[in-house]
Simulated assay, not measured.
Amino acid sequence: MKTLTVKDVSRRTGVSVRTLQYWDELGLLSPARSDAGYRRYDDAALLRLQQILIRRELGFSLEEIRKSLDDPRFDLEKALKAQRKSLQQRAQDTERLLASIDEAIAALKNTKSAYDAELFDGFDPSRYEREAEARWGSDPKFAESKRRTAKYSAADWARYKQAQDAVYGELAAAMKAGWKPTTPRVKALAEKHRLLIDRWFYACDREHHARLAELYESDSRFTANIDVYAPGLSSFLCAAIRH
Rank of each mutant, 00 (worst) to 15 (best):
D124N: 13
L119M: 01
L62P: 06
I52E: 01
R130E: 14
A104W: 01
L237H: 00
D24R: 06
D24F: 07
L47M: 12
L26G: 12
A44Q: 10
R73N: 11
A239S: 09
R199I: 01
V186M: 06
G137K: 10
N110W: 13
S61Y: 01
D205A: 09
L80G: 05
E25T: 14
A82D: 12
S10R: 07
A104C: 05
L69G: 04
D227P: 03
D139C: 01
T149S: 08
L53P: 02
D93P: 04
Y202S: 05
E217G: 08
K7M: 12
L212K: 05
I197F: 03
K176S: 07
E144C: 07
D219N: 15
Y229C: 00
R39K: 09
L4H: 15
T19A: 13
A190F: 06
D42K: 08
A177F: 04
Y152E: 07
L97K: 14
H208A: 02
S100Q: 09
H243S: 13
S235P: 01
R73D: 12
A104R: 03
F236V: 00
L62R: 09
R159A: 15
R148V: 10
Y216F: 08
Q162K: 15
Y22V: 10
D71N: 15
Q92S: 13
Y22N: 13
R147Q: 10
S126A: 14
D227G: 02
I226W: 00
A99P: 04
G169C: 06
R242Y: 05
L98S: 12
Y128L: 13
T223P: 03
R211W: 11
A154V: 14
L195T: 11
Q164R: 15
A132Q: 12
A107N: 04
